[in-house]
Structures are given as C-alpha cells and as structure tokens.
C-alpha cells in the first residue's frame, strides 16, 4: 500500500463537494474561464470582463483611484483593530493611545499605519481629482460621477479631520479648535453651527464622542455608499474615459 502524495491530496480536495461548492470552475487559464471568473465572482464583478487597452496603462490613471480605495480598506482594517483598545472619553483616550503604543502587540505599528494611510489617502484623492480633470474625464456622460467624486473628497477630508481629534493630545486638541473655529466665520448661524459641530461651546467630551461616532461609523458608511455609486457609474457611463 502506498501513501497518498501531496498531488493526491490536492486532487482529492479539488474534487470534493465542498471545494466545488466554493469554486464553480478550475483556476482560470483560458480566455473563456477568465471572463467567467470575473463575471461570476462578486468582488471581481466590480470590473467588466474586458477593459480598454489604454485603461490598464499605469501612466494613464497612475492607479490613483484604486490606491485611494485600497487605502480606505486598509484604514478600515487597522481602524477596527485600534477600536478594540480605544475608549472615546476625555479621561481615557490619551492613556489608551499610550497603551496601544506601549503595551499592545503591534499596537504602535497599527497606529502608525492608520495615521500614514490616512494622510496618504487625502493626498491620493486630491491627485485622483487632478488626474480626472486633466483628462477631461468629467465630461458627459460622466458629470454626475464627478460630483459623487467631489462628495467622496469631502468625506475623506471629514474622516481625516474627525480622526485627528481622537488621540486627545495637544496637536489634536488645538488643531481641531483652530479648524472648527473657521466655521464660526459663516455669515449666519455661525454660533449654532459651531455649537452643533463641537457638541458644546468648546472642544470637550461632547466633541470627542461626536467626532468618534462620525469617524468610526457614520462617515465610513456614507463614504462606502458613495463609493458603490462611484464605481457602478464608471461602468455604466461606458468604462474609464478614453485617452486624450
């Protein structure tokens, strides 16, 4: 009696009912199966089966939209990790950041990644906007998608700004104080809008919990919905714009 080799095990797994319930087809190697793979997988289905040749050139898009989306995913993952150790309270927040940095395994790394990815995302979203403008890719039929993109830019800025307060250190506190005070220059309802924004008269516990909720759930959801529309409209408006 011979023992089954690794090839036999792989074959056995791939012929099992469980495997075939997960994957309807073998690893795609032909054009037909590759087309089917994109069509049948919900995540790959974000893309059309075929794309224009110029669209896959790095120098046309510089991957800026894709990088922004990837950074959003990274921020979601690292953000969820950080949430395990962070309590949005004036008394605890700063100590929690300290303990994330010093006591949590990979805590400092996770916080660093979250911070740098956030700054990078603001930058790539801006660059993406400039790239799209340069190619005139907002022209009909893509006008609406440009507007969605501007809303996404706003969401990105707001996500970054609300996250800026959470460490509750001197940088955070005074940056948010200075930043929100710009809103008080509105010609009308300035006091009210600042009061509503800050959850009080000055940056305090009310502001912290308010910014926390917007940062970890409200605006990620809004941004995700906007992204769904954004990506969907790229396809429905005829794929990525043509070369100049």
């Amino acid at each position: 009696m011979t023992l089954p080799g690794p090839g036999d095990v792989v074959r056995y797994v791939k012929e099992s009912g469980l495997w075939r319930s997960l994957f309807r087809q073998p690893y795609p190697t032909t054009s037909r199966t590759r087309a089917l793979a994109v069509m049948n997988n919900v995540f790959l289905h974000l893309h059309p089966v075929r794309v224009k040749k110029h669209a896959v050139r790095y120098t046309y898009t510089f991957c800026l939209g894709g990088i922004s989306f990837f950074l959003f995913l990274m921020l979601t993952v690292t953000g969820v990790y950080l949430m395990f150790f962070y309590v949005p309270s004036v008394a605890r927040a700063y100590q929690d950041i300290i303990s994330i940095e010093n006591a949590v395994a990979f805590g400092q790394l996770t916080r660093n990644m979250h911070r740098w990815a956030a700054h990078l995302m603001v930058l790539t979203v801006f660059l993406h906007m400039i790239r799209v403008f340069y190619h005139g890719a907002y022209k009909p039929p893509r006008e609406f998608n440009w507007t969605i993109g501007v809303l996404l830019l706003f969401s990105t800025l707001w996500l970054s700004f609300t996250g800026y307060l959470l460490p509750w250190d001197q940088i955070a506190f005074w940056a948010i104080t200075v930043g929100t005070n710009m809103a008080t220059y509105a010609p009308f309802l300035s006091r009210e809008s600042s009061f509503w924004l800050l959850g009080g008269i000055t940056v305090d516990q009310g502001t912290l919990i308010r910014f926390y909720v917007m940062h970890v759930i409200a605006f990620p959801l809004i941004a995700a919905i906007l992204m769904v529309v954004h990506f969907w409209r790229i396809r429905k408006d005829g794929g990525i714009s043509g070369p100049v």
């Binding site: 009061f195 509503w196 800050l198 959850g199 009080g200 008269i201 000055t202 305090d204 009310g206 308010r210």
Partner: peptide, 14 residues
C-alpha cells in the same frame, strides 16, 4: 436628525 444630535450640555461652560 438635527434635533436629536443637538448637543445636550449639562453644567459647566454654557
């Protein structure tokens, strides 16, 4: 939504 999220300030400054 605006009414619900209106800050509920108790004591202190204000």
């Amino acid at each position: 939504t605006f009414a619900f999220t209106w800050p509920n300030v108790r004591g202190g400054l204000g």
